[in-house]
Structures are given as structure tokens and as C-alpha cells.
Design a protein around this nucleic acid. Structure first.
Lengths: 340, 340
DNA sequence: CTGTTAGCGCATTCAC
DNA sequence: GTGAATGCGCTAACAG
């Protein structure tokens, strides 16, 4: 095709095939009630001209759905959310829908923009991992009638379908396993409490301690680390305490990696490979079995989380029920010593 | 949107505000030539009704761009490509465009579908990490006038803008560093040669060997592993050779992780932590400094790769030159001992 | 400054 | 089986 040309339209295909636009439309829609010889002519013209049906114009017609599901995640660079998106896509594909994926970068403003754009592009539904700030823009009545499902994190006061992990239970079990090994001084590394996972995992940790009559020691609790370097630095502070913890509960992948990096740093400066705290990590990571200290992993299936969120959305779409009572699902997690 | 309900339209907003649709349109477009009091009325009605401008209808008008860039990657679950997509998005945002992201899963058919859908949705340009199979559907003349940039991998016979890493040079340098340490039996772990990175990295490996007068030993070369388990198994075969390699060049992240897992397995079965081959890995990975064997990493910046690909695309879009001679960029890589 | 007209690409409805 | 008319939501161009 020559420079400066537009995408060919259905009219041009029709002209080229010597039929009316309707015959082209019908042929592309499956060919019911079109003579085979005309279909062949149309398909030849389509190929010849490099015609693609304009999906935007198509979805303009009333009753025609856009075929799109909007997915907003917080961090594309995190494989957990990448796999989550794959799970959503898998279910969407099963229903003949495509996903449009956007990254919020944990920024509430970008999230609002993204959601507005999704709606402007006529998505049929939304799957959002909320960034944790204000969430006015996610309220059902601000979304037109577009159904939304939250995943991984909940938003206080937002009464919409939500899929979470069993954060409290996982953190509880993980902490309990440390207590059962005899640890009493257990450090906590976590992300900001304004994110619901941070909040919920802390609750599980505290609950296990409480059952053993241990009240949390504020000096052992570091819960503001959003990235690996902050986590490493928090671990450094814990290890330097006069009465350092003998075990660490890390509430997510980023904190676990940071903690392990600090341990590695000390080993390489000649500290020897012993005497470091045992670690329980909420979220798995590759090569956990290769670490110089044993790591117990609380694992969840990101892809399954994505699938469940999408299923919840499609259930609502099929029920044509965008305002029914909201549902909440908690997915189980598995606690296991890193495979070694 | 749930079947049965509609998003409010510009007409309804106009009616609610007591103005004409054009006044609404103008207000939403920035408000030039609209009295402030009418603007206020319009904005109030917009908020009241929860109106979102229909971007699909908007892009139907001639001259109105869709504001979308289509991005197709091979594996969303791989953080490398996640970060790549972030780089594309960053540059797109700078130009006021949004990205639509799709996952091909290394499947050529899905890639073709995805690209067709992107064009059907009137994307202004495409950034594709090609899956490696046949690529008829990526030829410029099959894409209408939509410009395309390939990233990370090239496709033989496809003369379009491409951004690659310095695969050959990186592999050459990495292999050379092993040769300079005195290794002569250097194993190769890589992905399938039909993917251009696999091909190019092998060439660099071979080139370094040739300079030292070493001809590749077929028994040391395993180049069909696309996932971690296959890589581990390939490493197992290498280690079990009567004359096992003293060093390994691993051509990508998946192969490196697999190789290390096999080493870990042997250490845990009591093999002791010495006597394993030195490893050079094309692609970095987290916690590489914690490995029981030293790992040299050939690193590249996925995000920068995404940025460069996007810049190439926007250069072409702005030049309104979708058919000029194609350009090829090779990004440098850094070779460094894992920071330890 | 504001409103009316017209048409973007497509598919539903109704004629033939 | 096929085509002509019509309108989806929006905005350029023009009229007032």
C-alpha cells in the first residue's frame, strides 16, 4: 500500500469485489445467506486490499459489544502481576474477549485516568489491582454501568466483587511455624499498611503471636518498604539491634529479596554463613532453594488469582447484573519449606 | 458495559445541561469559545450523569487518531518483557498515547490474530517482539499503513525497523572471559535457533572459541531449551559427561535458572559445593550474588529496549513516513561478575 | 460564542 | 440472496 493511504474500508472492498458493502459485511460475519462465489470474490478483495474490519466502528452499533476487558495492574515489571494478567487473559479468551492492559505504577491518579480511558473505549468490564490510595473513581456509580472486579487487594468502603488471597491465614500459619520452632523474637518486614495485603498479613502475624501470649515488639516491626533496597535497609536495622530477631516474617516478595540481599552482603563481608534469622516469606521467588539460609515460602498462584477474578467478572456480565450484591472470594495459599 | 444498560451519550449531557451537543464537545475539548457559565453547566451535567466520552466514536472521525499503540510481547510472565512494556509505555505516555498490550505466548498464530485485532482497533503503530515462526502477517504491506517496530528479535527477510541487543558481542565477550580464565571446555545452553537471539548468541560463543582455535564440541552444546525444566535437564546431561565442561555459557535467563537448579540439586544431595563449572549468563536475574557458584552476568536494560523501540516508532509516525528505509539499532550490554 | 448539518465505517431493518 | 436506507456517538465546517 502506498504511503499516505488510509486503511481500506468496507466500501472499497465492495467496489473491488463488485458487490455491495452488505455482502462484504455478511461474508465477514460468517457468510450466511451469501453465495459461495461471491464470498470467494469478497475474500479475494479483502486479501488484495489488506482490509481489516474497523472494530471501533463496529462497536459503535447498538448491541455490539466492544469485546474488550480492561485490566489495570500496579506493576508490569513484577512477574506476579504478569502472571495474574495471563490468568485474566486466559479466561477472557475462553469467552472470546480480548484484554486491554494498563499499568498504574501504584499511582492512584494514573489508575483513575486508566479506568476512565477504558470506559471511554467501551470495555465491557474491568479487572483492577487497586493502587491503595483514594478510590472514588472505582465506585460503581462512577463507572457508568461497567462491572468491576478488584483483585489481590481490597479497598475499604468499596462494595464490589473482590478476589483476595488468604493473607491473614497464610501469615498466621507462617508465623506459627516459626513459633513452633521455638522462635519468640520474630521480626516483621512488610509493605505500607494502606495497601490491604500489607494490613492483612500483619494481622495474621499479630494473631499468631497473640495466641502464644507474645505482644508485638515495635522495634522488630518494619512495615513501610515498597522496594528491594528499602527492604534491605530495614533488614539491616533489624540485624543490628542489640537483641536481634531470631526469625523474620517477610510479608511479600520485595521484602524477602531485600532481606536476603542484606544477609548475602554480610556473608560476603566474612560474617560466616550461620547465625542468621530463619525466614518465612509470603510470596515465592525463583531459586529460593539456593539460599544460604532456609526459607519457608507462603505461595499462591498468581495465574489462578487472575482466572478467578475474570470468572467473577464474566459471571456478572452473563447475569446482566451489574448491581447485584458483591461477592468476595479468598484463595488458599500453601506453606512449604523451600524445596531443598 | 452490562447488556441492557447504556453509557450516557453526549446528547444526554447536552439535554441535561440545556445546551447543544457541540457545546459539550467543545467544553470537553478544552473549552475554547465557550462561555464559562455554560462550561460549568456542562461539567456539572457530565459529573451528574457519569459521562465518559466514547473514544471509539471519536476515533471514527477522519483525522482523529485513536491514541493507541499496539504492543505484542511473547511472555507476560517474564519480568524482562514486563519491563520492556513499561519502557514502551513510558515513551508512549510522553507522546500522549496509550498502549494496548497483548501476549502471544510464543505462538505465531496468536501473534497474527493479535496484530490483526490491533489494526482493526486503529492503533497508530505496533511494537512487536516476534515469536519466531513464519511472519507473513508482519510484512509492511500486510499491515495497511501501520508502522511496526520489532524488538529484541529480528525476523529474517522482514525489512522493518528493529531494535536488538548486541547479542553477538555480549556472547563473544562472555565466552572470551571464560577462555581467558583458562577454560577450554565450555558448554553452551541456549534456546531454539529459530529465535534470532538464540542464533545470534550462539554465533558470539562460536566466534570467541574460534579465535582461540577451539572448534565447538557438539556434545557440549544444548540449544533447544525453552523453559527452566528443560534447561535443568540439559545441564544434568552436561554434568554427567565423562569429560564434563569446566564452564557454561548460558544464552538466556531461563537456561541459567535451570542450570543453577541442577547445581543446587546436586549440592543438596551431598555433592559438596565445589567442582561445579563456572557460569556466564546472558540475562541477569535476582539474587545472582547469592549463588553457590560464581555467576558472571551479561546484562541489558529491558526498559531501555522498550524506550528505544518506542522512540523509533514515534520518529516514523512524526515523519509520516511509514515506508522509508528501515533502521536497525543494537543496544550495548554490560558484562559483569555478579555483584559479590 | 452557539447551533445545525453532515458523515466517519459498520450492521440492522426492511425492501426487492 | 442481495442491496438501500438508516443511525450508532462524535466533531469539522459552516451558518447564525
Amino acid at each position: 500500500m502506498a504511503p499516505g493511504t488510509r486503511q481500506p474500508t468496507i466500501k472499497e472492498v465492495a467496489a473491488s469485489a463488485g458487490v455491495s458493502p452488505m455482502t462484504v459485511s455478511r461474508t465477514l460475519a460468517g457468510g450466511v445467506n451469501v453465495r459461495p462465489d461471491l464470498q470467494a470474490k469478497v475474500l479475494a478483495a479483502v486479501k488484495e486490499l489488506g482490509y481489516f474490519r474497523n472494530e471501533n466502528a463496529r462497536s459503535l452499533r447498538p448491541g455490539q459489544a466492544s469485546g474488550l476487558i480492561g485490566v489495570a495492574i500496579t506493576n508490569l515489571g513484577n512477574p506476579y502481576y504478569g502472571n495474574f494478567a495471563l490468568g485474566v487473559e486466559e479466561v477472557a479468551a475462553k469467552h472470546g474477549k480480548r484484554i486491554v492492559l494498563g499499568n498504574t505504577g501504584e499511582d492512584c491518579g494514573r489508575e483513575a485516568q486508566l479506568v476512565a480511558d477504558f470506559i471511554g473505549r467501551q470495555v465491557e468490564g474491568l479487572v483492577v489491582v487497586p493502587s491503595g490510595g483514594a478510590a472514588e473513581h472505582l465506585r460503581a456509580d462512577r463507572l457508568g454501568d461497567t462491572p468491576i472486579v478488584l483483585a489481590s487487594r481490597q479497598v475499604a468502603g468499596l462494595d464490589v466483587d473482590t478476589v483476595l488471597l488468604d493473607d491473614v491465614g497464610g501469615a498466621y500459619q507462617g508465623t506459627l511455624s516459626l513459633l513452633e520452632s521455638g522462635h519468640t523474637r520474630i521480626g516483621f518486614l512488610g509493605n505500607v499498611p494502606s495497601v490491604s495485603t500489607g494490613q492483612r498479613r500483619y494481622i495474621g502475624y499479630e494473631k499468631a503471636l497473640a495466641e502464644r501470649g507474645i505482644s508485638p515488639d515495635a522495634r522488630l516491626i518494619q512495615r513501610d518498604q515498597q522496594d528491594v533496597e528499602a527492604a534491605r535497609s530495614a533488614m539491616e536495622r533489624l540485624l543490628d539491634l542489640p537483641d536481634a530477631p531470631t526469625a523474620i516474617f517477610s510479608a511479600n516478595n520485595r521484602n524477602t529479596i531485600g532481606a536476603l540481599k542484606e544477609i548475602g552482603r554480610r556473608i560476603r563481608s566474612g560474617a560466616g554463613a550461620t547465625g542468621f534469622p530463619a525466614i518465612v516469606s509470603f510470596d515465592s521467588f525463583e531459586l529460593s532453594e539456593m539460599m544460604p539460609v532456609p526459607v519457608t515460602v507462603i505461595d499462591s498462584d498468581a495465574r489462578q488469582l487472575g482466572r478467578e477474578a475474570a470468572e467473577l467478572l464474566f459471571a456478572r456480565l452473563q447475569a446482566a447484573d451489574s448491581h447485584g450484591p458483591s461477592r468476595m472470594i479468598e484463595l488458599p495459599v500453601t506453606v512449604s519449606m523451600a524445596d531443598r
